[in-house]
């Protein structure tokens, strides 16, 4: 099969004010595959992930250098000339802690569409159902779509957040440790979901959990101190890493 790139990171540097958090990052992102970012706490995984949808633009003094090219359009995601909103319209994110809006389940999923100006009831209804099905939540909530999202369990809330992200038909879906606040059952549900979703969408996932990276991802990048130490097919990284640091990390000797 021919490899097809969805995005490519080239010489990316990122600064929080005067502090450099990402150094010279180069990374291909394969289309409709799951790429995992692993590495010890504080190595810059979240920082890196949040470059893809320009979340850093929300706060002052943050600065990007380099390029993240989005294919097939060939636009540079982090270029100051590109409106961050335009990027966020195409690249969705699921956060570490479930963060539903204090609105109904329905309105949570519909929000991204409302932002895009969709208000026709029929369109919203259809899209909400499709997204909730996509997030494997439909059967659990179909009878209470207009109840508050806060009434759901933590795992259900996280799947709701996934549905909310899916509703906007993203081209890339970003996950930042989506299961770290969840129990094992909820976690395995979300992992299954991620594996299913990659048929439709390119996924980048940050995880602390090595087994999780091994289970869900096709490619894995190991980060350390703001740099990518090693990037390869997931099974290679976990069976025959070429870098000593990577090996030490995945065998649990540090991190």
């Amino acid at each position: 099969m021919v490899k097809e790139l969805k995005a490519e990171v080239k010489k990316l540097n990122f600064y929080y004010g005067g502090v450099q958090a990402l150094k010279e990052i180069n990374l291909p992102i394969e289309r409709r595959k799951v790429s995992a970012l692993i590495g010890p706490s504080g190595c810059g995984k979240t920082t890196f992930l949040r470059c893809f949808n320009r979340m850093h633009d929300l706060y002052p003094h943050n600065r990007y250098e380099g390029e993240i090219t989005l294919y097939p359009d060939n636009i540079n995601i982090i270029s100051p000339e590109i409106d961050p909103i335009e990027i966020r319209m195409q690249i969705s994110m699921v956060f570490q802690k479930p963060n539903p809006f204090p609105k109904s389940i329905y309105e949570n999923v519909a929000y991204g569409l409302r932002v895009r100006g969709t208000s026709k009831r029929a369109v919203l209804d259809e899209k909400v159902e499709k997204s909730l099905r996509g997030a494997a939540l439909w059967d659990e909530v179909k009878d209470r779509l207009h109840h508050l999202a806060f009434d759901l369990s933590g795992g259900q809330q996280q799947r709701l957040c996934i549905a909310r992200a899916l509703a906007t038909d993203p081209r890339i879906l970003l996950f930042d440790e989506p299961t770290s606040a969840l129990d094992p059952t909820a976690t395995s549900k979300i992992e299954e979901l991620i594996i299913q979703l990659k048929d439709e969408v390119t996924i980048i996932i940050v995880t602390h959990n090595m087994q999780q990276a091994a289970r869900v991802s096709d490619y894995t990048a190991f980060m350390y101190l703001g740099e990518i130490v090693e990037y390869d097919k997931t099974d290679r990284i976990f069976t025959a890493p070429s870098n000593k640091l990577t090996e030490e990390y995945i065998t649990g000797r540090f991190g």
Partner: peptide
């Protein structure tokens, strides 16, 4: 209002005014 709510809204492509209007003011 927790920052995570704002981020959730912005991450979906909302503008500042959309976020204020549909989240900040109601909550």
């Amino acid at each position: 209002i927790p920052n995570s709510i704002r981020e959730a809204s912005y991450a979906l492509g909302a503008t500042k005014w959309q976020t204020v209007q549909s989240h900040i003011i109601p909550y």
